[in-house]
Design a binder for these strands. Sequence first.
DNA 1: TCCTTGACACGTACGTTGTACGTATGCAAG
DNA 2: CTTGCATACGTACAACGTACGTGTCAAGGA
Lengths: 208, 208
Amino acid sequence: MVRARYTLDDIRSEALRLVDRDGLAALNMRSLATALGTGPMTLYNYVRDREGLEELVVDAVISAVDLPPPTSDWRRDTIQIATVTWRAVRAHPAAIPLVLTRRSTSAAGFAPAEALIAALRRSALGDRDLLAAFRAILGLIMGSAQAELAGPLTSPPATAKDTAARIGTLAGRNFPHIEALSHVSQKSSPEADFTRGLKMLVTGIAAA
Amino acid sequence: MVRARYTLDDIRSEALRLVDRDGLAALNMRSLATALGTGPMTLYNYVRDREGLEELVVDAVISAVDLPPPTSDWRRDTIQIATVTWRAVRAHPAAIPLVLTRRSTSAAGFAPAEALIAALRRSALGDRDLLAAFRAILGLIMGSAQAELAGPLTSPPATAKDTAARIGTLAGRNFPHIEALSHVSQKSSPEADFTRGLKMLVTGIAAA
DNA sequence: TCCTTGACACGTACGTTGTACGTATGCAAG
DNA sequence: CTTGCATACGTACAACGTACGTGTCAAGGA
């Protein structure tokens, strides 16, 4: 009888692949173990419990962030880092709930935050403003991902037409502003909106 | 034999109470049913499945938002609405993962978004900027809640001293900027930081 | 008054999940 | 070859979500 050997990276990448392919509900000990060609309990040699497995997926997503080298323009750097991070999160829609709720524990998970603070520090901000700016930008990234996942301008598993219909009937009567904006949002790309909002925030930061 | 009668509100408030008291893991059909004095299957008369139950909790949290009446100052209104919403979310920490990942389906869930757009519309923003601004503010609210829940400047179940120690040892070496900021964050209140970041964003919006 | 009918509370039971615990197997060092 | 440790693996159980069936109430018509 042969005994397979695994590395944490094997588990990590297979877990992410599983989530990408079959959705978040498919991320359970048995499915992942089967995908790796072993039994459920083997995984417990690499992960404390199911929660640990989810953290692994978060790490896998965040690790894929490809940080740009610093330039002399902190605003441009800030926008770049935020955009790249946002893209990495968006690249794995099924994993977004995990990214929003689980903490990233690996070193790679801290890298974007570190780069972001480094960029912001090259502005002339005081400590308190720096902290607020950092929180705001990270918040914007996560919140934008969340909004796309479950925001009031989106609808769960439906086509764009269904979305318009659903929002139209559900919110249209009592919530005319939401309804009007949902029409606008259908004509614009998420990335364009994100970038626009991000630039607004950076402008506000620069004003402080 | 007596048959109890329930209303959706009974279920909703009991579910939120359960989450507040015993944590998110305690939100299951059996526990909630027991708390209501009945069996698990009774709940299925009010809720499609467990997911529906979670949406109910989200509704309960968002419904508690106490929106201020509009004034003539859209900036002030925007900040007020955002702050009040953020407070409502923060009032139920255990429910935050649900608020971040589940969609609010009830009418009450749309109210803050509607009020926010209404306030922003009273600025002179174009449609695209309005959309971006709305997304950014909602994103900031959700993202800030997320950051407090699982951000790089926090640590899971630990005292403030442990946090400093943990961040210090884990991130201190390789991530000096994070480490430095975590010290700053320990001396400031979450609300102050949130407000500060929010004002930055509103400033940026006003500049557009 | 009695019967019908629909809504809904509830019980039973099954498949799936996470994981505690015990066992077995390979590799490395002596 | 032997010993010991790390770790792959099997078994088994408790807790979960929920399909399905049964029972019981209240309201409306004859």
